[in-house]
Amino acid sequence: MSETPAVSEGSALPEQQGQTAAGKENGRFPRGIWVRLFAYLIAGHVFAGFLYLLFEVGSK
């Protein structure tokens, strides 16, 4: 009997999983991450501007 565990066809080794995910992107972030980051930055600044105006108008 063999001491090595059997690997089914559907499962990949951890080394192979990391290579396929990183190999497709070539060390870059996916485009969806950049779009989400940009949207969150814009929304955050709009919300901060709203709060600033709210307190400015409320203090007068």
Results as ranks from 00 to 15, higher is better:
residue 43 A to G: 13
residue 60 K to N: 07
residue 7 V to Q: 03
residue 21 A to V: 10
residue 53 L to E: 04
residue 18 G to L: 13
residue 57 V to K: 15
residue 9 E to R: 07
residue 13 L to P: 00
residue 5 P to E: 14
residue 12 A to F: 14
residue 27 G to L: 12
residue 1 M to C: 04
residue 11 S to T: 03
residue 16 Q to W: 09
residue 3 E to S: 13
residue 40 Y to F: 15
residue 41 L to C: 09
residue 57 V to R: 15
residue 32 G to P: 01
residue 39 A to R: 02
residue 51 L to T: 03
residue 52 Y to G: 08
residue 7 V to L: 02
residue 14 P to R: 03
residue 24 K to H: 10
residue 11 S to Q: 07
residue 38 F to A: 15
residue 17 Q to N: 06
residue 54 L to G: 03
residue 34 W to D: 06
residue 1 M to S: 13
residue 39 A to C: 05
residue 19 Q to V: 03
residue 18 G to V: 06
residue 36 R to K: 08
residue 51 L to I: 07
residue 21 A to I: 08
residue 9 E to F: 05
residue 47 F to M: 12
residue 14 P to D: 02
residue 36 R to T: 08
residue 11 S to G: 02
residue 28 R to V: 06
residue 34 W to P: 00
residue 11 S to F: 04
residue 10 G to P: 00
residue 32 G to C: 05
residue 42 I to P: 00
residue 59 S to I: 07
residue 2 S to Y: 05
residue 19 Q to Y: 06
residue 60 K to A: 12
residue 51 L to F: 11
residue 24 K to P: 02
residue 51 L to K: 01
residue 20 T to L: 14
residue 40 Y to H: 10
residue 1 M to T: 04
residue 39 A to H: 00
residue 15 E to H: 06
residue 2 S to L: 04
residue 6 A to F: 15
residue 50 F to W: 14
residue 41 L to F: 10
residue 51 L to A: 09
residue 49 G to Y: 01
residue 1 M to N: 04
residue 46 V to A: 15
residue 13 L to V: 09
residue 18 G to Y: 08
residue 12 A to H: 10
residue 36 R to L: 15
residue 1 M to V: 05
residue 49 G to E: 03
residue 12 A to Q: 10
residue 1 M to Q: 04
residue 36 R to E: 09
residue 13 L to S: 15
residue 37 L to R: 02
residue 12 A to N: 06
residue 22 A to S: 11
residue 38 F to N: 04
residue 36 R to D: 09
residue 27 G to M: 13
residue 57 V to I: 13
residue 5 P to F: 15
residue 23 G to L: 01
residue 23 G to R: 03
residue 52 Y to I: 11
residue 42 I to E: 02
residue 55 F to R: 03
residue 19 Q to D: 04
residue 40 Y to A: 14
residue 14 P to I: 00
residue 4 T to E: 12
residue 7 V to P: 00
residue 48 A to M: 13
residue 38 F to V: 10
residue 45 H to M: 11
residue 7 V to F: 01
residue 13 L to Y: 12
residue 60 K to I: 07
residue 46 V to D: 12
residue 3 E to D: 15
residue 14 P to T: 00
residue 34 W to C: 05
residue 32 G to D: 06
residue 35 V to L: 14
residue 3 E to N: 14
residue 45 H to F: 11
residue 10 G to C: 11
residue 51 L to E: 01
